[in-house]
Design a protein around this nucleic acid. Sequence first.
DNA 1: CACTGTACTGGAATGGGTTCCGGCCCGGAA
DNA 2: TTCCGGGCCGGAACCCATTCCAGTACAGTG
Lengths: 362, 362
Amino acid sequence: MSDRTAHPRKAARAAHGADRTYRPATSLADRAGMRQVADRAGVAMSSVSRVLSGHPDVSATMRDRVMTAVEELGYEPNMLAQMLRRGATQTVGFVVGDISNPLLAQIALGAEVALRAAGYAMLLTNSVNEAHLDATHIRLLQQRRVDGLLLSVSDETNTETADALARTTTPSVLIDRDFATDAQASAVLSDHAAGITAAVERLVQHGHERIALVAGSPHVRPTRERIHALEEAVEAHRGVFAHVRSGAFTETHGSAATRELLDGRRPPTAIIAGGNQILVGVLAELASRKVRIPRDISLITCDDVPLAKFFTPPLAMIIRDPYEMGSVAARLLLDRLGGGDPETVTLPTTFVTGASCAAPRP
Amino acid sequence: MSDRTAHPRKAARAAHGADRTYRPATSLADRAGMRQVADRAGVAMSSVSRVLSGHPDVSATMRDRVMTAVEELGYEPNMLAQMLRRGATQTVGFVVGDISNPLLAQIALGAEVALRAAGYAMLLTNSVNEAHLDATHIRLLQQRRVDGLLLSVSDETNTETADALARTTTPSVLIDRDFATDAQASAVLSDHAAGITAAVERLVQHGHERIALVAGSPHVRPTRERIHALEEAVEAHRGVFAHVRSGAFTETHGSAATRELLDGRRPPTAIIAGGNQILVGVLAELASRKVRIPRDISLITCDDVPLAKFFTPPLAMIIRDPYEMGSVAARLLLDRLGGGDPETVTLPTTFVTGASCAAPRP
DNA sequence: CACTGTACTGGAATGGGTTCCGGCCCGGAA
DNA sequence: TTCCGGGCCGGAACCCATTCCAGTACAGTG
């Protein structure tokens, strides 16, 4: 063994001696570079590069010679070198609160599929709903020189995050988020107001007068939009009142808020759960009190959950198409990467009624 | 800009003429490089590198000078250059069938958190359950020079995938997958047999004699293990029979298989659903026939679903800890990246009974 | 035949760090 | 005093491809 432990490649060559011809490059360890291809074809590296990048200034002869050498050596270009040289990584970063949330997972899927089709790969980071990690991850991804960012941060009000965003020149797409400071980013939004409004209309038709919203974190757009829409919808109807309990997108908050609401002086006759974790908490609290749906209280949930339609009773919900959101986010980002201007797209939400939403007890 | 990429020579000539020095298309706002730091500090680049990489051969004076220059210029090292030079990307690829599956999303989360803590980033690709994409994505990630792979491929029997795996020297960890050919990879497995066995024992105690398993794709380990365990468990009991319907991890297969089973000559009195999509299909078919749980049939599902415990009746399930699986997968990969040997870890599954699992009608 | 234009090619700079190696300087041992 | 070794530093090769630019050869034109 040679003493130059840091250069295994050379060591290997030295060890095997020069009596060996090249090996079919099945072994990644001893990969052929463009240098080797050029040597074998008896041409310059620049010519190899031109052939492989489809540059017009290449003769048929040259193309054949190079391609033959490429085949023989099983040459594959080193993307790292290309990235360094070209200054583009064909990589996009996705900053997400928590990928284990099915909603976000579907968004991620939609985005990844679309990005991959365009030759981009997706780096995923989870902020596990800790606001301070958002900015950290944005910086981390920028250090990795991502060409663009998909952002579903966990707290819009965090100044560090807002700063990181305002400072950056990396093309970004916000996913259902809204930063006052940043006019540079594109955004895909959901029209939460429409869903809430439709749901409230239905509840009012049923005769509900006290409607509660157990919402998630007030630091993200969906929660704000829902609260705002609820209050507005309620104002349109004389004698109908809204109770809002925002907090976090957790089961704990869901059950705690429900407890408070039911223990209040004038408990609501209908609850809208603002997220799937919250829904679990709401259901847990209702179950523990033997409050029956929809006899004792009506329930509507935001965003689909797999078993909702087989639930007893089937759950009314305000749904949207998260896969589509991901696709659109990817498209917006690709547009920007192609030189387009920032753009905002709003996708619809739909109220799907179900037996969990009925008339209150008289 | 885009023209320059395609035919830079012509575009450059036409647009700029000779008045400008050449600059790479993506010159990022004149970022300071190590060169600039070295100049400003009046030292060699090698010294800057040593300071920043914590090399021991550095005097206090040198450290100060360099760090001052770094601060003043707001220098941040270019990770691409580091990757190219070091030959390591600090990046791991995750090949997954479909991230929108909550089980896999949780695995991804567990893995990403652990990897990030160790300084690695995670590239995510979805094969959308198309077997031929697995191999494609493995190659894709290798072109991007990932240091390691986390693999939850959608088809173990695909020869292209098996080849890609056998040929590679990239440290890999299989996630609940089992390739006959490849002895190189580490693996995290779930002990599906234990869960199935416990579930069958319970069903037999209740007096069930015809137990069906609506399983997913037969080309992945979990399905094989479950089928095998079911058959073995049944053999231990005289007069108890197993019906197996494997197919795909889809709602469609779930309902079709259930239909066949119920229409069969001797329909089962208990069904085990092998996955959350399948569960939805099974429930749909049962609901459409007004078959009641557990009066008419007992139901057990594999892997937790969010609302399972609030279901009517609460669902019995065979659960495991997917987040933990992800963490362990990450740890195994990090071990290998650190020079350790391949290792296989098996994690437990637990049978949690529920009202959906009861005695059959006499 | 001289001249210009065109098609193609090779050489070298470039991107931004990492690391081996040689060398300087200084203290301690012989 | 001389030699040796260790601490510390600068120079330069290297990682691997991209692309500018200069230059060659050859065809077409006057």
